[in-house]
């Protein structure tokens, strides 16, 4: 992969435009129990992660449907973040991590195991972006934060960068709030705005998949609401995986939900089914608030 492939105009496949234009009802229907799941963007097979001797996750099999939101739920320490970070190999930044199993990501039309030898981490992370629990803007201006990715990936044309910045900020529903102060330091934004800036920053790289680890954990209800609205819109273009501790949030934003417990995937099913009629006893206990 060379950096030239990142030049912006070619980055959005035309197919996406069509999806964006689809009527709302399609999404609503996707939540129904009987509808078949859209084809996966990521397939995870027998994935295990350990931190030295500590278990992270064990033997997880899960498909992440394309252009929809999948929510990961479960009690603290059950391995949600570990699973998420395994999808763009961010786990490897921690010392002593060992991973086994397969993570197949749709990559130029076919599935590619990201743990196969020779996989370029840089290319992987361009395709699988990430938003962190705590907003982590760079100590730079708002616009510099957004164009950071495209710039590093070889886009130098100023007009193109400005366009990309505006688009990403619009997608992240932040444009109207910051368009007059693009050169202000990112740190001057509120927490909720910072988190949307980080979302815009991730989107500006045009990933296929966006991983979000409790993106609203440190935000107030209004900012949370904005980000939840955003997720609905973004899922027309992106495959989104979100970790959340709020079942209501999972119900509001996701089509599919996966429940983790003690490092294992207990159950994964359409969200509506998970909330109303889970198959596993442990899931039922969790969603009805009997533990966790």
């Amino acid at each position: 992969m060379t950096t030239e492939t990142m030049s912006l105009p070619t980055m959005v496949p035309p197919a996406r435009e069509a999806t964006s234009a689809a009527p709302e009802t399609t999404r609503a229907a996707a939540r129904g129990e009987t509808d078949p799941e859209p084809q996966p963007a990521v397939r995870v097979r027998d994935l295990s992660v350990t931190y030295g001797t500590t278990l992270g996750i064990k033997g997880v099999d899960l498909d992440l449907p394309e252009r929809s939101v999948t929510a990961l739920i479960g009690p603290s320490g059950c391995g949600k973040s570990t699973f998420l970070r395994a999808l763009n190999r961010m786990n490897e930044l921690f010392p002593g991590v060992a991973t086994s199993g397969e993570v197949l990501v749709r990559w130029d039309g076919r599935f590619q195991d990201i743990y196969a030898p020779g996989v370029d981490l840089v290319e992987l992370r361009k395709r699988v972006g990430m938003v962190f629990q705590r907003p982590n803007p760079f100590p730079k201006s708002i616009v510099e934060n957004v164009i950071y990715g495209p710039r590093r990936h070889g886009v130098t044309d100023r007009a193109l960068l400005a366009e990309a910045a505006e688009e990403a900020l619009r997608q992240a529903a932040l444009w109207d709030e910051v368009k007059d102060k693009l050169n202000a330091p990112a740190a001057a934004l509120s927490g909720g705005q910072q988190q949307r800036l980080c979302i815009a920053r991730a989107l500006a790289v045009r990933p296929d998949v966006v991983l979000m680890d409790e993106p609203t954990a440190s935000l107030d209800p209004i900012s949370t609401g904005k980000i939840e609205d955003l997720l609905g819109k973004l899922s027309k273009d992106y495959t989104i995986v979100i970790v959340t501790h709020s079942l209501q949030q999972a119900a509001r934003v996701s089509e599919k939900t996966a429940f983790f417990l003690n490092g294992e995937l207990v159950e994964a099913a359409p969200t509506l089914q998970m909330m109303t009629n889970p198959r596993d006893r442990r899931t039922e206990n969790y969603v009805t608030g009997r533990f966790g």
Partner: peptide
């Protein structure tokens, strides 16, 4: 912020 940058594929 270091991880934030790496996650962008840099």
């Amino acid at each position: 912020i270091e991880h934030g940058s790496l996650a962008l594929g840099t």
